[in-house]
Write a protein that binds this DNA or RNA. Sequence first.
DNA 1: GATGCGCTGTGATTATATTCACAGTAACTC
DNA 2: GAGTTACTGTGAATATAATCACAGCGCATC
Lengths: 219, 219
Amino acid sequence: MAREKSGKKISLQTVERMSLYRKVLEDLHRDGVANVYSHQLAELVRVSPAQLRRDLASFGSFGNISKGYPVYQLILTISRLFGTDTLQNVALIGAGNLGRALLFYRGFEERGFHIAVVFDIDAEKIGRVFAGRRCHHIQDLEAVLPDFGVAMAILACGAQNLQSLVDRLGRAGIRSILNFVPRQIHAVAGMNVENVDFSAKMEKLSFLNRYGTALEFEI
Amino acid sequence: MAREKSGKKISLQTVERMSLYRKVLEDLHRDGVANVYSHQLAELVRVSPAQLRRDLASFGSFGNISKGYPVYQLILTISRLFGTDTLQNVALIGAGNLGRALLFYRGFEERGFHIAVVFDIDAEKIGRVFAGRRCHHIQDLEAVLPDFGVAMAILACGAQNLQSLVDRLGRAGIRSILNFVPRQIHAVAGMNVENVDFSAKMEKLSFLNRYGTALEFEI
DNA sequence: GATGCGCTGTGATTATATTCACAGTAACTC
DNA sequence: GAGTTACTGTGAATATAATCACAGCGCATC
């Protein structure tokens, strides 16, 4: 949990919502909107106005009391908060179907992340170039990584020896991992892990389909 | 929020953790483990033993007081809770890079979801077969969907006219949407939406890299 | 320059989630 | 069959998150 210098905590849930806010603020900016009131923005992201105001206030006050919040400036402030106001290099482990889809995905670049280097274990893929990036063998991780100054890695590889790969990444200076592999991995000291599990989301949706509207839940 | 017949609520956070539990329970089952204690399972998913016990207790008691929890039976119970003990058909909208990666992804099938039908807007793709599934034009949504009995859809398409597509899906009987498009969409009445936003997760990680360990947070 | 309006930021309150801690008990020992 | 151990399930306590509600203010209007 990060703290402001005044000692106020900023919760991770607030940080997650901040991504949402930024997303719709980008839309508003595209549409030429210069200022927005908390109740308008809150309506767009389906959050209560009070919560929005508290979230934004948690890292300083930005709202003009009669104009609302300045759209563009808020985008910049949130980007700075994330550290995505400048592009940062990330590494991709695994050039399978998902890995290659991520390489071609433009959303990362738009939000400040550049996949700079790719690793795989499949000899057939080594040396090939995917969307402008050459694929290296995972053996050469320690040798190649320093050239790119990456602090974050995306895991889209197979599940074999996953944890030892994570440990290795930690030793090689990786501080954060976005994990697409549906296995539980354990962060080494000081490392942060976020899991993306499509199926888990589907399971939640399937649960909601069954019990979400009917309030009685039978075993 | 679903309720048990006794009136106890089961929270969505509990449901999300249930996916984690099931994942590591599958691992244990593969390894031939028959029973597991709450503190062991809790350690594996990095959750407190008390929370694990409360989560599991929230839909009935299952633990044997001296053997712990029966691994296989718990997997079955959680599957039933999700409604994934039988395979269910889902629709995929968008056969771009991401959509095709999802078609080839085996994780869905393993967890009870079968992508049965694919739609796209790109004339070049209509009629082609991806991983055994023929791609239909999005125009034919209403005509084709009923053949497959799907209640869930995965959105992996472009952002244009996204909300009207969502409305259309709702009218065509889709009750849940897994949305990969990084735009905010609004569910119609009775519909559930889950968003998957890779970049948002990266933003959170990037934030943690900056402020996660150092507790002081400067504007 | 006085009045009114409607906004933000935030203390106080309520709701929700997590942890603590222990009663109750099955299995195992002697 | 009495004693010991170590577990589960759960009421009580705590911590965290969300909401309410309002003071205080900038701007518009007259």
